Amino acid sequence: MKKHNFLLLLLLILTLVGCKKPVVEEEEEFKPEKIEAEHSFIVDDFSSYIKLSTNLFLEEEEIVPKHSITAFMHIVKGVNREITYYQYDWVTVDGTFDTYYKRDFSEPSRFIAQQFLPFVKVSGNEIDTISGLIKYKSKLDDVLEERVVKYKEEILKFNQSDFTNNSNHDEILNFNVYKFDFEDNDYHFKFAINFEIEAEPIHIDMQSWIKTKDDEVYPLMGLYNYATYSENYLSVSDEIVSGIVDIEEIYVKLVYIYKGNTKVITNIFNINDLVPLEEE
């Protein structure tokens, strides 16, 4: 009898052990590392640039600038092209750090355009630097390769003394601002850069500002790491500024690197002289 009870007890213990739930290890939370990068020139098979936009909002009778960041990424050579990861870090003028990344994609993409900072107020009211890191793969000469591109851009700051010898062109390129009128009482602008050279590598950083009739200056649109083989640029969408201010002038500063030399062009556009693109 005792032997029979012992066998039943042993069977029960073995059954309970067999029913024990397996231990499932939780996936460790992904934490991106801060991007360590320098200002770069151009990448032969990959194009990536940043558009920084600013609009104005009235909050408690105070005009507040809010900023947006849009990133453009494009694998321009090879087959089986796929962006596998991207990350953007930005630091404000008072040292506040933030980051955005994406590593899960529903389908392979060789071109991505994403507005990942949609018009928000940032600490210090101004962005100081933006860094990008993109991982991608493509097959060149029947060899599938994985590559990493990273760069850092310092946002150009407004300085009235920069605008002395003004012009919107030189022997390498020209740029322009166009204004469109709609019934919403806001300002609608487009920016264009056109090259006098053909198929030659050039790196452009550009920033614009508005100056109101009250002599207040606010950022408008910035274009950074526009590294291209002389491909003209035209705004995809309008840069919109709220009609809560009266704009008098638009200041534009463009810095480009070409054949190892750095050149700066500045110009001031009077708001009354701007026309739509088709009327130029």
Rank of each mutant, 00 (worst) to 15 (best):
F119K: 09
F30C: 07
Y85C: 10
T54H: 07
L133K: 03
I134W: 04
K121H: 10
I69G: 01
V255Q: 00
L10H: 10
W209F: 07
G124Q: 11
L8I: 15
I204E: 00
V93T: 09
K213Q: 11
V93A: 08
F30W: 09
A37D: 08
E198P: 05
L277C: 14
A192Y: 01
S68Q: 06
E145K: 15
V236Y: 14
K190T: 06
L144Q: 05
E126F: 14
K20M: 13
M73P: 01
V23T: 15
K211C: 08
Y187K: 03
E153R: 12
F111P: 09
A37K: 06
D98T: 10
Y178D: 00
D181A: 11
H203S: 14
K137E: 04
I83C: 02
D184F: 11
S48A: 13
E60W: 13
T84Y: 10
N232F: 05
Q207T: 00
N185D: 11
T262H: 04
Y229W: 12
I130S: 00
Y224W: 12
D238P: 03
S208K: 01
K152M: 06
S237A: 13
H67F: 10
Y88A: 11
L173T: 02
I172E: 04
N168G: 08
L58P: 07
H169A: 15
L14K: 14
E29L: 08
D186R: 13
H203I: 07
K137D: 01
E26G: 07
D89G: 02
Q160I: 07
L254S: 00
K157T: 09
N194I: 08
E278A: 15
D141C: 04
E82N: 13
N185M: 12
K253I: 00
D44C: 08
N232S: 09
E154L: 01
A71V: 09
T92V: 06
D246I: 04
V255T: 04
F30Q: 05
N159C: 06
N174V: 05
V217F: 12
F180T: 13
K157G: 09
G222V: 01
L173S: 02
S167R: 13
I75S: 01
E249R: 10
A71N: 03
E28V: 12
Y233K: 06
I204C: 08
N185T: 13
V149C: 01
I265G: 00
K152A: 07
L11S: 15
D45G: 05
V17Y: 12
D45I: 04
V148N: 12
N165Q: 11
T212W: 05
P108R: 13
F158A: 00
E278G: 11
I69R: 02
G124S: 09
H188R: 10
I134Y: 03
Y136C: 00
Q115N: 15
D94Q: 12
Q115W: 08
I268A: 05
Y85N: 11
